[in-house]
Design a protein around this nucleic acid. Structure first.
Lengths: 142, 142
DNA sequence: TTATCTGCAAAATGTTTGCATGCAC
DNA sequence: GTGCATGCAAACATTTTGCAGATAA
């Protein structure tokens, strides 16, 4: 976790990007939160520490990280774009269609679909995304 | 294919929804096209037959179908929302990150991840979505 | 005939851009 | 000191809403 932060900082420096307090806070929030926050949520939290910060700054940093491949967008059927802190271990998203919570689940069966797909379609496959939709335990009671 | 159209029409009627010429055309376009069009693309094509139609009508119909669970949104990292005509056979999306084409691939290995996930997380799983990203054969030469 | 759908225009929402000032390096 | 980042406001793009007239049932 600490390592991930260090790695991100190094990655930014290597691109001649500056580590401002706002960016550092955003990086920490992205890494620590396992809830895949949206830009608006990140902005809300960031504003607790930097009352004058703006949504534009959040978007600019997110776009920067996206361009570096360090963050992934999860555009999610019901509204805003959420961000996945580039959790480097492969995982599945489990999305509650009621409370909109997104959880990560480590891969249970590592499918070697990739090789099969390449053989079958000729695509050069660079990434993938597995999402499951359902009702989380907490929402099932309601 | 014909059956699917019949089924959709029946479904709409059952909800006291009217089958207008515009809707019928939209349904046909959704079912026939395997390219997962966006609202704007659907509007463009619809306008060829109904020059005075509006984007609002397209959105209203898509939202109706979405609410009925007959159409799925694929919000796709680079721009608009695309629509999947609720192709009833399970399939994988293969998305070219260069030309943005989305292809359907039938499930090769039907993973029974669902049961495993339910056992492990307590979620009541209702759906899923597998997307692979890569470069399609046509774009690899460029 | 009646409730729904259409299509226009306006509004709401989410994201991006331009630019002057401020700050990391 | 230099150049990138911030933060404001304005611009943009996409989607939604309201409503009067049209139309499927």
């Amino acid at each position: 976790m600490e390592d991930r932060l260090e790695a991100l900082i190094a990655r930014l420096r290597e691109q001649d990007c500056r580590i401002t307090p706002q960016r550092l806070a955003l990086l920490e929030m992205l890494i620590e939160s396992d809830e895949h926050p949206s830009a608006a949520e990140l902005y809300e939290r960031l504003r607790a520490r930097f009352p004058t910060t703006s949504l534009a700054t959040v978007y600019k940093t997110l776009n920067l990280l996206k361009a570096l491949g360090e963050v992934t967008e999860i555009s999610f059927s019901d509204g805003d774009t959420h961000y996945d802190a580039g959790n480097p271990t492969p995982h599945i998203h489990l999305i509650c269609t009621q409370c909109h919570r997104i959880s990560d689940v480590p891969f249970i069966t590592a499918p070697n679909l990739t090789a099969e797909l390449t053989a079958q379609t000729g695509y050069h496959i660079t990434g993938h995304r597995f999402d499951f939709y359902g009702i989380c335990p907490a929402c099932q009671g309601k």
